[in-house]
Nucleic acid binder design. Structure first.
Lengths: 219, 219
DNA sequence: TCCAATAATGAGTGATTACTCACTTTTAAA
DNA sequence: TTTAAAAGTGAGTAATCACTCATTATTGGA
């Protein structure tokens, strides 16, 4: 805990715009992320968080009305960053300008989300575990991801299909294959075998090539 | 809850061999599965389980020493069934006899696990959610899956590679692609969009074809 | 029919929970 | 330096937690 966590600086930068966080508040968030991701939200107690943060328990409730509000203050901002690569207005133009082939597009997305997962891993873990149990999280996710990202992703797939670079497959199915494969890599890399000797470049190539072979037309 | 849950009959059959369960014990297990899968283990209380089961709270602890033991009695037997398709002695012989092509093998595994997921969904959900927080679960899973299944799966992949039916890829990477794609389908089908209008045969075909195109050599 | 074993009960246990509040300390602008 | 607001404290609260145990109800073999 001596080094500054990368997700923390991001979190600070986001909250900064609204209001400055005190030193103790930062300690609280740090401790909460650590304990939530270790024991789950329901399995963590505010007294334990306060202890690890070196703070009185009452201080937590100065800054957050409830334990749940503390959870949301950690997880919600991450969602915005999660969908960042798709948060552009004219998506098709970006595609045409920057990504002439499916491969270059896939590689960009994969590498980008790989770094994202590396940075925000503890919070992503909390998010994945808690989303089935909190309506607020599910609805925020639906709003942001389903509406914002899905349509743009389908558009990208249709774009490549029209250019004969992706086989004729319903876009939801094609997207499912892409996300499944990339998520499968990320989950294996960071959750199942985080301490393995990973040759990331090679594995990224395997992953991208698998998707490419699976989705592009055969000559 | 008026109809008999499919996972329950399986659970009964397994426990039957050791000891008979009383009516109240069955009610307890039913209620526990429902509540655990809805609220998570840490978020569920024994009093709530007792209430839903129509049983005194003390009755739970007559049959299970602790709340955690109740959890394990539900989740552990499922793991045995999870790896059932791979629990044969001479795996290569089965491959050669019954599955001449990668496609027939993949289709068999996918359809088989699709039915498994349909049957045991609530317990699988509990399992996935709780495995990061309970050492006993993790170790049981490692023992059974890592040792029993992984080696056999690698063997199957190597078998097909030797016959030129799967491209030259490290077996762990190839297996990751296969599992990611199938899991991605099952998670989408039962967790993300369980109420969608699914044309399962078509989706299974998409899934299998994607894996085939991704892993088989191009002509 | 009787009886010992097993099943079931529910009030009671101390520990822990999220959260409150009267009070003290720190901060920063005037 | 003064002072009001903000930050921080920690003992205290009622509620709930997993679990116990003395007691009662039910069971099935002799």
């Amino acid at each position: 805990m001596s080094e500054i966590e990368p997700w923390l600086t991001e979190l600070l930068r986001l909250n900064d715009e609204e209001e400055k966080m005190t030193d103790k508040q930062i300690k609280i968030v740090q401790a909460a992320v650590e304990i939530f991701s270790e024991k789950g939200f329901a399995g963590s107690s505010t007294s334990e968080i306060a202890q690890k943060a070196g703070v009185a328990e009452g201080t937590i409730f100065r800054h957050y009305k409830t334990k749940k509000e503390l959870l949301l203050s950690i997880v919600a901002p991450m969602m915005t960053k999660l969908i960042a690569p798709f948060a552009v207005k004219d998506f098709t133009k970006v595609l045409e300008a920057d990504y002439p082939s499916v491969e270059s597009f896939l590689r960009a997305v994969t590498l980008n989300r790989l770094e994202f997962a590396r940075k925000h891993f503890p919070i992503i873990k909390i998010f994945i575990h808690e989303i089935p149990f909190h309506n607020e999280l599910r609805e925020q996710f639906k709003e942001k991801v389903a509406v914002q990202v899905l349509e743009k992703a389908y558009k990208a797939i249709r774009h490549f299909q029209e250019h004969g670079q992706i086989i004729d497959l319903p876009p939801p199915a094609a997207l499912r294959m892409i996300i499944s494969t990339i998520m499968g890599f990320l989950i294996t890399r960071f959750l199942l075998i985080p301490d393995g000797e990973w040759q990331e470049e090679k594995e990224v190539d395997y992953t991208i090539n698998f998707i490419l072979y699976g989705l592009t037309p055969r000559p």
